[in-house]
Design a protein around this nucleic acid. Structure first.
Lengths: 217, 217
DNA sequence: ATTACTACCGTCCGAGTAG
DNA sequence: TCTACTCGGACGGTAGTAA
């Protein structure tokens, strides 16, 4: 478990203190003072750090070997996070629109924001997909847990319209559009509403039951 | 030791395989098949991943909670690596110039490159520092293991002049200059030669034995 | 204050093996 | 093959305390 060492080195560097006591370290690592003391001694004997003990604590210098381990790990995590993006794809089946999306698109105060924030003027209707497999559901959850583009809500003639979250996506690797999700109402998890500059049913000749692939990027 | 989980999740993502067996995982983590099996079950019960067991192995999906942990860790490491730069400071004592630096500065073909690549025209002499403490020596090593600015070597009337590596630095947090290190000759590790647009001895009224702080940025 | 030793003990690892 | 159970033993954790 190489990453144990990294956790400590990372903390040492982030504390940005010249002198640190093992007791100070302990709670941040969820360990006792004694264990931290031992861990640090181990790091030193592995040549990852160097320490000088003073009256108030120890001055720790992360050595080249330690830094190199840190950088390697950083690269690994970057690679891991990078590979997530490629996993952000899910499939669903075209269903007839029962979603609220189309209604939103009819509201001018929403509509103007779409062009502004998404860069395209959406067709005034949504493509509704139903997700069947659980694995695709997870992918969809991953997409809509990314940082959303927010379409602000408003009040009009006594009614309140909430914020809408948008997530850019590509439909069948062909057309660029966006998944829209009302911020408040958590309606059926398995239905996804998609908007695009064009009518997707027409431009891609889709009918109910057709499988569609959605990629987030 | 939170990072243990990360190590496994990171590996899962980097393998980019749909189906993975615990036995395949084991060597990469330095654990036994049994331990990997248990670790993965723990990850699942902590809600970080989801797994489906098939005949050939298990299909693992990293859940939102797992991804978020991964991103947090990535940010921490980025912060840690970022803070290294601020740690790149060392101290040395002014000594009389026995270095080769001054000689280099006398060579026009080198000299013109300094202005070009460093953005300043150096005073035709170097400030030589001797590093006494080992901790400072480590910091100095860290500085000169960064990506160097290279001053190209050349041949002149039969003699060969090698490449020179430069590292921007700040002297006593006051004057901007550069550490220069011949690429070939690995002369005394404890002597550092510094160039600056001005004569540092004069502008900072330095004499032999004065302590000087060098920061790399 | 600190660090770190000793002693004890709980957790975790892995060999064997079942399913 | 695969996953995962049992169980003995090692490793790692902490309390007490010395330096």
């Amino acid at each position: 478990m190489r990453y144990d060492d990294i956790e400590i080195i990372s903390l040492i560097l982030r504390l940005k203190k010249d002198i640190i006591s093992t007791g100070e370290f302990a709670p941040a690592l969820g360990l006792s003072q004694q264990s931290v003391s031992r861990k640090i001694r181990e790091l030193e004997s592995n040549g990852l750090i160097k320490k000088e003990i003073t009256a108030r604590g120890q001055k720790i210098t992360v050595l080249a070997k330690g830094l190199s381990l840190l950088r390697t790990t950083l690269n690994e995590l970057n690679e891991a996070v990078g590979s997530i993006k490629k996993n952000l794809m899910f499939k669903g089946f075209v269903v007839s629109g029962l979603g609220e999306g189309s209604y939103y698109l009819g509201q001018d105060k929403y509509f103007v924001q779409f062009l502004d924030k998404l860069g395209f003027s959406p067709f005034k209707g949504t493509l509704n997909l139903r997700i069947k497999e659980d694995s695709n559901l997870d992918a969809k959850e991953a997409v809509i847990s990314k940082v959303p583009i927010i379409i602000n809500g408003f009040s009009d003639s006594g009614r309140t319209f909430g914020d809408i979250m948008c997530f850019r996506c590509k439909i069948n690797n062909e057309v660029e559009g966006a998944i829209i999700v009302p911020k408040r109402t958590h309606h059926d998890d398995r239905i996804v509403e998609i908007i695009a500059p064009v009518c997707l049913r027409e431009s891609m000749t889709l009918v109910d039951g057709d499988e569609v692939e959605v990629t987030s990027y």
